[in-house]
């Protein structure tokens, strides 16, 4: 495997990044879909507040988001202490890195999902209801399939964001090799040590390749789905 000339530490960083990004994306998929649906379809008090909260990580400096996470989920944080009681520790663990990535990618995911849900023709959903489909059946058999391209795009965006997340992650869970040192943290570390340029460049190229692959994959999927919905 060393055709790429990667050191074991670099491999560890890549594997960790993929794991963190995958867990962050999968874990935020259903909450993201639920909130996107609420924002797209429901009018309720506090809707604007929810919308603002979801978008907050997009406009706050990542360091601030990371620090807020540390305050909330740190060992002595508001939720962190309670979670520690039941054995869940997030600070300075890879799970914390996943949480930071999920929070940072959440606005992108919800935005894409919400737009695709808003684009689903309500009249077709009504027609399904007249044929006997309950609201939950309508969601599963009509809304979700029709919104799927956007839902996938949202997931890919969140994954790509998680692969590149740096500020909030390093603030919240630091930069521990093998535990919280993701690809961007590893690149940052390599640029800080003498002779690290080659390693930084290698990881940078890997990072670019992974992001491109994710983008291409989502593009292919979206096109395939569009064909299925189109004049097939």
């Amino acid at each position: 495997m060393d055709g790429l000339g990667l050191t074991p530490d670099e491999w560890t960083a890549i594997a960790l990044s993929l794991r963190v990004a995958a867990v962050a994306t999968l874990a935020s998929l259903w909450p993201g879909l639920a909130i996107a649906w609420l924002l797209a379809r429901k009018r309720f008090p506090g809707r604007g507040l929810l919308d603002g909260l979801v978008h907050l990580p997009l406009i706050l400096p990542p360091v601030v988001t990371g620090y807020l996470l540390l305050l909330a989920f740190g060992r002595r944080g508001t939720f962190g202490a309670a979670l520690a009681e039941i054995g869940i520790v997030l600070s300075f663990r890879w799970t914390g890195a996943a949480l930071a990535c999920a929070v940072m990618g959440f606005p992108l995911m919800v935005r894409a999902m919400r737009l695709s849900l808003e684009a689903v023709d309500r009249r077709v959903e009504q027609a399904a209801a007249t044929l006997g489909a309950s609201p939950w059946s309508v969601f599963l058999t009509v809304t979700l399939p029709l919104a799927l391209p956007g839902v996938l795009a949202g997931a890919v965006l969140a994954f790509a964001k998680a692969m590149g997340e740096f500020g909030a992650t390093i603030t919240f869970v630091s930069n521990i090799p093998g535990e919280t040192q993701t690809l961007p943290s590893a690149i940052y570390t390599l640029t800080q040590v003498p002779g690290g340029e080659a390693g930084a460049l290698r990881l940078t190229l890997i990072s670019v390749a992974l992001s491109m692959a994710a983008l291409l994959a989502s593009e292919l999927l979206a096109r395939r789905l569009a064909r299925r919905l189109g004049a097939g």
Binding site: V124, Q126, A127, A128, A129, T130, G132, T141
Partner: peptide
């Protein structure tokens, strides 16, 4: 709606 058992043909087909 889904328990009324009333079929509807709309102005446009509204197919899935």
């Amino acid at each position: 709606t889904h328990r009324r058992r009333i079929g509807v043909v709309f102005q446009e087909p509204r197919l899935l």
